[in-house]
């Protein structure tokens, strides 16, 4: 029992009939909440809450009311701790509360905490967008994309010239060897004359060079999925364009050099995406062939980034 703040002893139970379990729990919570309130308010709050309690019908409403009283006690106690006490007697008699609450000068810690949490959430969202942590979401949101490869046009078979310019083979006239007869020797030397070296035939008849059937290289089996190389930032900004590259590939289908941009798409991000795609495809290129034999070659590779 508490008779503070002009309140009379709480002699009556809120309900005449025996309370149920929920009601007992609610009353217990209310009593506990009031006992934790500042001392000069405990009795007043207990009686006030007991008086208001029966007006809440139903176990749920009564428990909510009791829980609210607990919450109210925590707020009142906190504000009381921050308050500057006025005259001690002002809290009694007429029911005035002896609290000086500096409403607008004391920082509200709960509000500050909420502001900090909001700032942190914004920071996390900005970080996620800036670092591309959401490319799958962006990809689904844009509804897909398309990348085209442009094959190199078929090269005409290489054929030898039909009428090569005639050339002449110079005729060699080797000197005829003469037997050496020394002046002071009478011996004769049987010299066998050296047969002349056969001379090549002069004229214009060369053997014909066979035609070369060349098939250009390009992206082959197992080449990476182009959608995976659409830059996430470009997806978000809706960037599209066509990037043309020069790609050099060995006979094994691997890059033999760094691909380079020959015609920019207009976006550095898209160009870089195209280069990454070209590099990732190393080993999955279809090498160019000449007469069915794989050879090293360089060919243009164009990637179109397009949103659907």
């Amino acid at each position: 029992m508490n008779t503070n703040d002009g309140g009379s002893p709480v002699t009556s139970e809120p309900h005449a009939h025996p309370p149920g379990a929920a009601q007992r729990l609610a009353l217990h919570l209310i009593g506990r909440a009031a006992s934790h309130a500042p001392a000069h308010l405990a009795g007043r709050l207990l009686e006030e809450w007991f008086a208001d309690f029966p007006l809440h019908a139903g176990a749920v409403a009564q428990l909510r009311f009791a829980a609210g009283c607990c919450w109210a006690t925590s707020i009142i106690s906190r504000e009381h701790r921050l308050a500057i006490p006025l005259a001690a007697g002002s809290a009694s008699g007429s029911g005035a509360v002896g609290l000086h609450l500096p409403w607008q000068s004391t920082p509200n810690t709960r509000r500050n905490l909420i502001v900090v949490l909001i700032l942190l959430l914004h920071g996390a969202a900005i970080y996620a967008l800036a670092t591309g942590l959401v490319p799958p979401m962006a990809r689904h949101a844009t509804g897909g994309l398309v990348a085209h490869f442009v094959d190199e046009p078929q090269a005409a078979p290489v054929t030898p010239p039909i009428n090569p310019s005639p050339f002449t083979v110079p005729t060699l006239n080797p000197p005829i060897p003469q037997p050496l007869v020394p002046d002071d020797t009478a011996a004769t030397i049987d010299a066998t004359p050296v047969a002349p070296t056969p001379q090549p035939q002069s004229g214009s008849g060369e053997a014909p060079v066979p035609a070369v059937h060349r098939v250009p290289g390009g992206p082959g089996k197992g080449f990476p999925n182009t959608e995976d190389y659409y830059p996430p930032a470009s997806l978000r900004f809706g960037e599209t364009g066509l990037a043309a590259m020069q790609v050099c590939v060995g006979a094994d289908g691997r890059l033999s050099g760094n691909p380079r941009i020959t015609e920019s798409s207009g976006s550095a991000r898209l160009d870089e995406g195209a280069l990454r795609l070209a590099r990732a495809g190393s080993g999955h290129y279809r090498a160019a062939t000449e007469n069915g034999r794989a050879v090293s070659s360089c060919f243009p590779l164009r990637v179109r980034f397009e949103l659907r």
Partner: peptide, 27 residues
């Protein structure tokens, strides 16, 4: 909710906007 209402009543009373008294009944 009661958790909101009673602190507000105390604030307004301490600010001089409200006065309060006990109901004139014998419990």
């Amino acid at each position: 909710a009661s958790g909101t209402l009673y602190p507000i009543l105390l604030r307004l009373e301490s600010a001089g906007w409200f006065v309060s008294r006990w109901e004139a009944v014998d419990p």
